[in-house]
Amino acid sequence: MGNNQHTTDGLIQELRRGTLVLSVLSQLKRPQYGYSLVQCLAQKGLNIEQSTLYPLLRRLEKQELLKSDWELTGTRPRRYYQLNENGKEMLQELSDEWNRLAEVVKKLTQEEEIK
């Protein structure tokens, strides 16, 4: 039975959405500006829309997980984001939770295959 493509897309997007914050935080141990982060994530296999990422960076800054500064690189200023202390702790906690969850889900889905 073919799944409705629309439903599939929606569910996959929902699944990815939950991992975004963790993915973004993981790449901000060193300072990055928006576009460099998009490319960095894309290179590693995570395609994220720019219109999603940039507001997300603002939100994470507002939640006091990131610090940001305008810095002059090359000929013009760019806004650089980086984890602060809170952010580092959060990254650790989220990574732990992710690993635990990944193991559980793996078990659950494999169990389904055996049956």
């Binding site: 500006y33 928006g34 720019q50 760019r78």
Partner: peptide, 20 residues
Amino acid sequence: KQKRDIVEELRSLIIDNLED
């Protein structure tokens, strides 16, 4: 309140895209 800052950042990001 955030308008100027966000617009500035978006401008620089669009230029990044273009340069790339």
